[in-house]
Design a protein around this nucleic acid. Structure first.
Length: 594
RNA sequence: GGCCGCGUAGUUCAAUGGAUAGAACAAGAGUUUCCUAAACUUUAGAUGCAAGUUCGAUUCUUGCCGUGGCUACCA
C-alpha cells in the first residue's frame, strides 16, 4: 500500500510540472496531517512552492488543489487557508485503507533484508546487583532492538559483562574475610545481592582504615593508597592476572552467583540476549590490538612505557591505552571487544546502549577504530541516554539511595496486586492467571514510565507516579486493549467476523482512529531511524486514548444495525491489534482481561 | 577553565522550520438504569533572556543566564 503522503507528493510534483513547468523532487514537498480544526485529511504546505508558482499562496493552493482533484480519484475536495492546501480524501479511499490494514497484519513492519545490527546493552559489573539505572538501560536496549527488527533489520542482542578488575576483587576480599562461607544457597539470598553485600562491606571497612590512617598522620590520598585492604585487593588483582588457581576459583564461584542472580532479574524483566561477551575474554585481544597499533606507528609510547593515542587532530585529547606496567584500561578492552564482535558477526552497525556520562569515551573509541582502519569503525554508534534521578536527587550508592531493580519490580507487583484486588478485577481468575496479570501490569507500568521519555534526556523517577494507573501510562493503554478484547470475545460468541469490512457511514471518531492507524508504518519508520522508543509508546497511548473516548461515546455491541455493529467490532479489533503490536515492539505485554 | 547535553503550564513530559505550542498529574466543576468508571466530559494554566537567519522559529545560528555530565594510568 502506497502511503498517502507519497501519493500526494508525486501528484503535487506533477502539478507543479504541468502548471508551472517546475521540476520539484516529490520528496521535497511538505505534507502534514491536517490539523483537527480545519477540513481535510492531508495538507500540502504551499509556502515553499511559491518560488516555483510565482503566485500568491492562496492562488497557488487553489491551482494545485484543482489539479489534484482532477487527476486523483481519491481526492474528494480541497480548501485553501493561507498557505495551506487541505485535501479531503474520499470515503472509499479510507475504507480501502482500513480493509487493507485489516487484511495485512504486518502492514506497518519494514521489509526484511535490512542491515545486520548489533545492539549491546545492560553490560553490568559483577560486583553488585542491578539498579534503576540499569533498568532504563535494559528496557531501552531491548526496545531499540525490537524497533530495529520491526524495521526489517537483523538484530544481534549482546551483553558485555564486566567481570574482571578491581571491583570484583573487592567483593572477593571482603567475602574471604567476613563471609563465613556464606553462599546463595546457605543464605537464600540472590547471588548478585550476596556479592553486592560484600562489596558494600569492603567499602565500609576500607573507609574505617582510611580514617585510622589519617588519624595517624597520613594524608587522605596516602591513606587511600596504603590502606591494607586496598593493598590486598591490588595483590589479588595481580594474582588474578597471573592466573593463581585459588583466586581464579573464588572468582569463578562468585561470578557464577552473580550470573545466576542477573539471569533471574533479566527473566523477570523480560529481556534477553543472543550472545554474551565477557570482558575477561576480550581484554587480552585489546592489548594485542594496541600493540599492533604501536608497531604501525598509529599509537606511541611515552618515556615511562605507557602507550597513548594522539587524537588532537580530531579535536580530542591524547588518551592512554596501556598503563606503564602493561595492564589495560577500560578502553583497551573495548577496542578488543569491538574487533571480536566484528569477527564474529560482520555486522553493518554496532550500537552501544550506554549512559551519556560516557559520550567522550565512545567518541574516542570510534576515532581509535578509525585510525586503526577497522572496517567496523564507521558502524560504531553510541546510543547515549540520560541518567535517572530521584525526587531526592541523584542516586548515590554511598548514601544508600540507589533503587534496587529486584526490589522495585517486586514492590510494583505488590502494589498492582493490592489495587487490582480492591477493584475486584480478578474475579474468575485462577491464581496463576492473577499472578501473571499483576506482572503484566506492573512491568507495563514500569517500562512505559521509563520509555516515555526521549532517551537522550535525563529523567526523574518518581516512585509514586511510576505506579500511577491513570493518564499517560502503560496501564491505561493496556486497559483499553483489554476492553476491546472483551468486546470482540462477546461478539464472536454469537456471530462470526466476516472477511470484508461492512461499508457503513463513519463517525468522526472512527475516521480519526483509521487515520491514526494508517500512520503506524510512518511512525515506526521514523522511530526506527531515530532510535526512539518513546515515539512508539506515545503512539500506542494516543491510539488507546482516542479509542477510550470512542468507547465512551459510541455504542458498539449495543447498536441494532448488524452491519454497523460488525464494522465497529472490526475497527476495534484493528485498534487492539495495533496497540498490541506497538507495545510488543518495545517489550511491553498486554493482558486479554484486566 | 575547556568540551558535550538540557532549559516548554504548579509538576512530569510532547511538538520532520509550518496554521490557534499538545498530553498527563495536581487544582476546580460535572457524568454511571448502557459494551470493564483502572473510564469520560469540562474550566484555568507554559516556550529562561537578547539578537540573527526565514514568508514563517519551541525547533537553526550567536551571546548571556540557569542546570547536568565529561575533563582518571576508575569502569
Amino acid at each position: 500500500m502506497t502511503a498517502i503522503e507519497s501519493i500526494i507528493q508525486s501528484a503535487t510534483a506533477e502539478a507543479l510540472k504541468t502548471l508551472f513547468g517546475a521540476d520539484v523532487p516529490a520528496k521535497q514537498i511538505t505534507i502534514n496531517d491536517t490539523r483537527k480544526e480545519f477540513d481535510g485529511d492531508v495538507t500540502v504546505v504551499i509556502f515553499p512552492l511559491l518560488r516555483f508558482t510565482k503566485k500568491k499562496p492562496e492562488e497557488s493552493g487553489e491551482l494545485i488543489g484543482a489539479y489534484l482533484k482532477d487527476n486523483l480519484d481519491i481526492v474528494e475536495g480541497f480548501n485553501v487557508v493561507k498557505g495551506f492546501l487541505n485535501i479531503g480524501l474520499t470515503k472509499s479511499y479510507w475504507h480501502g485503507v482500513l480493509q487493507y490494514i485489516y487484511d495485512h497484519e504486518q502492514f506497518a513492519f519494514g521489509p526484511s533484508g535490512g542491515q545486520k545490527i548489533m545492539v549491546e546493552y545492560s553490560s553490568p559489573n559483577t560486583n553488585k546487583p542491578l539498579h534503576l539505572g540499569h533498568l532504563r538501560n535494559n528496557i531501552l536496549g531491548y526496545a531499540v532492538s525490537g524497533l530495529l527488527e520491526a524495521n526489517g533489520h537483523e538484530v544481534i542482542k549482546t551483553n558485555l559483562i564486566n567481570d574482571r578488575g578491581i571491583h570484583i576483587c573487592k567483593s572477593m576480599i571482603a567475602w574471604q574475610k567476613w563471609g563465613n562461607g556464606e553462599t546463595p544457597a546457605s543464605t537464600g539470598m540472590k547471588g548478585d545481592h550476596l556479592v553486592g553485600k560484600y562489596y558494600v562491606e569492603f567499602d565500609k571497612q576500607y573507609k574505617l582504615q582510611i580514617i585510622q590512617l589519617v588519624a595517624q598522620g597520613f594524608t587522605e590520598a596516602e591513606a587511600e593508597k596504603q590502606a591494607p585492604l586496598m593493598m590486598e585487593t591490588q595483590e589479588m588483582l595481580r594474582q588474578w592476572e597471573a592466573g593463581n588457581e585459588e583466586v581464579m576459583s573464588l572468582w569463578r564461584t562468585m561470578n557464577q552467583w552473580v550470573y545466576d542472580g542477573f539471569e533471574e532479574t533479566y527473566k523477570n524483566l523480560g529481556v534477553s540476549f543472543d550472545q554474551i561477551y565477557y570482558e575477561s575474554d576480550t581484554y587480552l585481544i585489546g592489548k594485542e590490538v594496541v600493540m599492533e597499533g604501536l608497531e604501525k606507528g598509529i599509537f606511541f609510547k611515552k618515556e615511562d612505557g605507557s602507550v597513548w593515542v594522539d587524537l588532537t587532530d580530531r579535536g580530542l585529547d591524547e588518551k592512554i591505552l596501556l598503563r606503564a606496567d602493561g595492564t589495560s584500561v577500560y578502553i583497551t578492552q573495548d577496542i578488543g571487544t569491538a574487533d571480536k564482535k566484528y569477527a564474529d558477526h560482520h555486522m553493518d552497525r554496532s550500537i552501544y546502549v550506554v549512559g551519556n556520562e560516557q559520550d567522550y569515551h565512545f567518541k574516542v573509541l570510534k576515532e581509535i577504530c578509525l585510525k586503526l582502519g577497522r572496517k567496523h569503525a564507521e558502524g560504531i554508534q553510541h546510543f547515549s541516554y540520560g541518567m535517572v534521578d530521584l525526587p531526592s536527587g541523584k542516586m548515590k550508592s554511598r548514601e544508600g539511595t540507589v533503587v534496587d531493580a529486584d526490589d522495585l519490580m517486586a514492590e510494583m507487583i505488590e502494589t498492582v496486586k493490592q489495587r487490582t484486588e480492591e477493584l475486584g478485577k480478578i474475579d474468575g481468575f485462577t491464581e496463576a492467571e492473577a499472578e501473571e496479570l499483576f506482572k503484566t501490569i506492573a512491568l507495563g507500568a514500569l517500562k512505559f514510565f521509563l520509555l516515555r521519555i526521549e532517551p537522550r534526556k535525563g529523567m526523574l523517577f518518581n516512585p509514586e507516579e511510576s505506579i500511577d494507573f491513570h493518564g499517560y501510562t502503560g496501564t491505561f493503554t493496556q486497559f483499553n486493549y483489554a476492553r476491546i478484547r472483551s468486546i470482540v470475545r462477546k461478539f464472536e460468541s454469537k456471530d462470526n467476523i466476516p472477511d470484508i469490512i461492512p461499508s457503513v457511514d463513519w463517525e468522526s471518531l472512527e475516521m480519526e482512529l483509521v487515520q491514526m492507524i494508517s500512520r503506524f508504518p510512518r511512525m515506526l519508520a521514523d522511530a526506527g531511524e531515530q532510535l526512539n522508543p518513546a515515539a512508539v509508546v506515545d503512539y500506542a497511548y494516543n491510539l488507546a486514548k482516542h479509542y477510550s473516548k470512542y468507547y465512551a461515546e459510541v455504542p458498539i455491541l449495543g447498536i441494532q444495525d448488524v452491519e454497523v455493529k460488525t464494522f465497529r467490532v472490526m475497527l476495534s479489533a484493528v485498534v487492539a491489534r495495533t496497540i498490541k503490536q506497538a507495545f510488543a515492539i518495545v517489550g511491553i505485554n498486554v493482558p486479554e482481561r484486566m
